[in-house]
Amino acid sequence: MQSTRRSFLKGVGAGVLCLTLGQMGFDLGEAKAYVRKLKIEGAKEVISICPFCAVQCQIIGHVKDGKLVSTEGDPDYPINEGSLCAKGAALFTMYTSDHRLKKPMYRAPHSDHWEEKSWEWTLDQIAHRVKETRDRDIILKNDKGQTVNRFETMFWMGTSHASNEECAVIHQALRGLGVVHMDHQARV
């Protein structure tokens, strides 16, 4: 049995839903003319999760024409039951913030400014930095002659913002490189 507490919804699928209005029998009455159009009417519903604390309130993202138009709590999730705190309630403008970083940026040694760069260039540069550092510094044997294969001079910090899948990818890549200095927010 699938759950729904949204009587106006026709069936709840696996994540992506479609909001339909108009058959609810509402008499919009005198005030109709002064009430703005429901901005989520006809929007696709997508289930996401608030990116903050580990209550992990589920969120419905309302999407129209590939654009996010609103967010609110998912009433079906048994833990938040549709509710959110101040941060969760501000998700919409958090996603639409103009302040967001939009492109890879580069700051050269001793420079006083950022430069926009392409992903191609940026990933190439980073790959070379990692390899050069690793090739120079990796410790194959310790003082006792034991094999250690340890790349000590590069660290990784972060992040609990990553999904489980991303954590798995990051962990595997780092141990492949021989990284031991790795840590994230669980330790602060």
């Binding site: 005030a31 609110e72 549709g82 509710s83 959110l84």
Partner: peptide, 15 residues
């Protein structure tokens, strides 16, 4: 009123 007329809770109550 836009939400209420559509059978939804006011945003503050919902939240």
């Amino acid at each position: 009123a836009d939400r209420v007329q559509a059978g939804m809770l006011p945003m503050c109550v919902k939240t």
